[in-house]
């Protein structure tokens, strides 16, 4: 008999913080939204383009953008995309050209834009070690044809709440946020669970060098579903982060010739499992 383990329920946005997410993401973003600032907020993980309290667009080097998503599986050829980018110069103009050329439906552009916006915002608003910077007025706002702008903008508060909700979702699957950004290696659990096709494809790209965002880019897919699958695979014991190398100063000289090198201590699947349990408990 196969026991189907239902994944934990998807979290629902907390109603008590519906109006404002305080102290969580970026106090600067909260302030900029309150003053309806227009410009670009640049943080370590990415940037948000703001205008009048709305997020027009978000980008992050960790999240595949509109062009990657549309060209990876043949919705557009790379040539069609880059021709439109070259003619229009900005994202809204590019989308307008592609719509006018009949390459895509309006809904396809909207879905793709919203998905990439929230994906990039997740990384842009991730905890960072350096403060963000805001460039006032650096956004090109399309005033001439505003009603016809094909890309939907999202209120800042909605983006903040969704980022918090996604963090909660990922935390519920596997509470180690480093799986979002660190290189991943495969591990070999004693009783591996059955995999979904998406998980098989993610696991096939795990090579000890690629991080979760690298896998999403290699697949030409969205970043967030890959983060979800990586956390689920980590929870199932099928992948992990490689052990951190010791600091170079503390590294002992190489073993003398002829002395066998001991395998790393998480070579044993039992020890690897215990380490994962320890890491998970510490992360709680």
């Amino acid at each position: 008999m196969t026991v189907v383990e239902a994944p934990p329920p998807l979290p629902i946005r907390d109603k008590t913080t519906r109006d404002r997410v305080d102290g969580g993401l970026s106090p600067m973003l909260t302030r900029l939204a309150a003053e309806q600032a227009t410009g670009v907020l640049v943080r370590e993980g990415g940037s948000l383009h703001l205008a009048g309290g709305l997020v027009l667009h978000a980008e992050s080097r960790f999240a595949p953008g509109l062009g990657t998503l549309l060209t990876a599986h043949g919705a557009l050829t790379a040539e069609e995309w880059w021709t439109a980018v070259g003619e229009a110069g900005d994202l809204a103009g590019t989308a307008r050209l592609l719509l006018a050329g009949g390459h895509l439906t309006r809904a396809a552009v909207q879905i793709c834009h919203l998905q990439t916006l929230y994906d990039a915002a997740y990384f842009a608003l991730a905890p960072s070690s350096s403060p963000g910077r805001f460039h006032y007025g650096a956004v090109h706002v399309d005033t001439g044809e505003d009603a016809g702008s094909p890309l939907p903008a999202v209120p800042v508060a909605d983006v903040e709440r969704e980022v918090v909700r996604r963090r909660t979702l990922l935390h519920g699957l596997w509470p180690d946020a480093l799986t979002d950004s660190e290189p991943l290696v495969r591990t070999h659990p004693i009783a591996a669970p059955a995999l979904t096709p998406r998980q098989t494809a993610v696991l096939a790209l795990v090579d000890g060098v690629r991080t979760a965002p690298d896998i999403a880019i290699a697949q030409g897919g969205r970043a967030f579903p890959t983060l979800v699958e990586v956390r689920r695979l980590a929870a199932a014991g099928l992948l992990a982060m490689p052990p951190a190398p010791p600091p170079p100063a503390a590294q002992p000289p190489g073993p003398p010739m002829g002395v066998p090198v001991a395998p790393p201590d998480d070579f044993d699947p039992h020890i690897a499992l215990l380490k994962r349990v320890r890491d998970a408990l510490e992360a709680l």
Partner: peptide, 10 residues
């Protein structure tokens, strides 16, 4: 489910 030639998830 919405069929799409990209990773739409919709």
């Amino acid at each position: 489910f919405v069929p799409a030639p990209f990773d739409s998830g919709a």
